[in-house]
Simulated assay, not measured.
Amino acid sequence: MIVSADLAAFIDAIGPDELGRLIGWARPRYALLPVTSDDAAVSEGATVLRPASPVTVEVASVWPTQDGRGLRARLREKNEAFRAVVRAAGFEWNEREFCWTRTLNVLEGPAQHRVAELGADLLRAGFIVSVSSATIADLIVTGRWIPATKRWILPLKSGDVLLRWEKGGDEVWEATKHLRGAHWDTALQGTVISAARYADVRDFAERFAFAATPEADALLLAAAEAERRQLLVLDVPEPLQPKRKPRAKKPREVSVPDDLLAD
């Protein structure tokens, strides 16, 4: 294909990202994307898993970032089913990287397990999946990946604990309204409750599958121990009334005869 000088100058001027946006979702857009270090890692050690009846011949790639703090996913076609799966997994579209991205926190477990989790979801949805290592592929095939915990009991500096759960947990939200002494904190994006109500917190956690961090668990244990050390008083007696002293009698006035008075 011969490209005119004017067209070549135009392409150089706007850059590959803007050209990709002009072209739309067509396959040529991907050819303009630079190969990143993460992409290179995927292509070198990738393992491809295929479902019995793929919904498309395109391969969905899923990989962790090199620092282990994020996930990336990409399918080289516009597919609403793929979009629904990755959005449900907490991914957002990143125009700059031209892929779906998700940032991990320390509570979500190892990045490899999160890749395996999404890979398994995509396989169930009928997509051919490329994961970044044979280890991750083995986690998917054997089912040994650990699901992410999305509901947490977190410690607060005040000595209270914070209940935080995933978006859309309407059932949990309604149940927290019946927790005695609990209140919603917009800044913390969760429900705050005193650790002294440890029994209610434990029951709630068991009912709605919450996990506690070691620090939060220590707060609840300390509250339980403090209650155990309290003295149990079944009956509080009335205080003893002090005995009243008899009032002193006022002395009588006695007159002394004058002849008995000393001179």
Rank of each mutant, 00 (worst) to 15 (best):
T103Y: 10
A89Y: 14
L49M: 09
G109P: 02
E80H: 00
V62M: 02
V59G: 04
V86A: 08
L75C: 02
P64H: 08
R102Q: 09
V59E: 09
T65E: 12
E58G: 06
P54E: 02
V85H: 07
E95H: 05
R72E: 10
S53R: 15
F98M: 05
E95G: 11
A52T: 14
T101Q: 07
V55L: 15
D67K: 09
P51S: 13
R74H: 08
V57T: 15
A89N: 15
V48H: 00
V86Q: 04
P64Y: 09
A89C: 13
F91N: 08
G70R: 09
R87S: 10
N79A: 12
R87I: 03
A81V: 09
L75D: 01
R74E: 06
E58K: 12
L107K: 08
V48Y: 03
P64N: 09
T56R: 10
L75A: 02
E92Q: 12
L104D: 04
N94K: 07
P51F: 14
T101Y: 11
G109K: 01
R76F: 13
G70I: 04
A84W: 00
A89H: 15
F91Q: 08
A60H: 03
F82R: 03
R83W: 00
P64Q: 06
F91A: 07
G90H: 10
R96Y: 05
V85S: 06
R69L: 13
W63F: 12
D67C: 09
T101D: 12
L104H: 06
R72I: 05
A81I: 02
F98G: 00
P51W: 13
L49A: 03
L75T: 03
A52D: 15
E97V: 02
T101S: 12
A81F: 00
G109A: 01
T103D: 08
T56H: 11
F82N: 02
R83S: 06
K78V: 07
A89Q: 14
L49K: 01
F98T: 07
N105S: 14
T101V: 14
V57Y: 14
R96H: 06
L107D: 08
R50C: 10
W93L: 06
P110S: 08
S53T: 14
R83N: 04
N105Y: 05
R50P: 00
W100D: 01
N79T: 04
A84H: 05
A73T: 04
E92W: 04
S53N: 14
R50F: 00
K78Y: 12
A52G: 14
R87H: 05
A60W: 02
E95D: 13
W63Q: 11
F98A: 13
N79S: 15
S53I: 12
V85N: 11
F91G: 02
E108M: 12
A88D: 14
V62K: 01
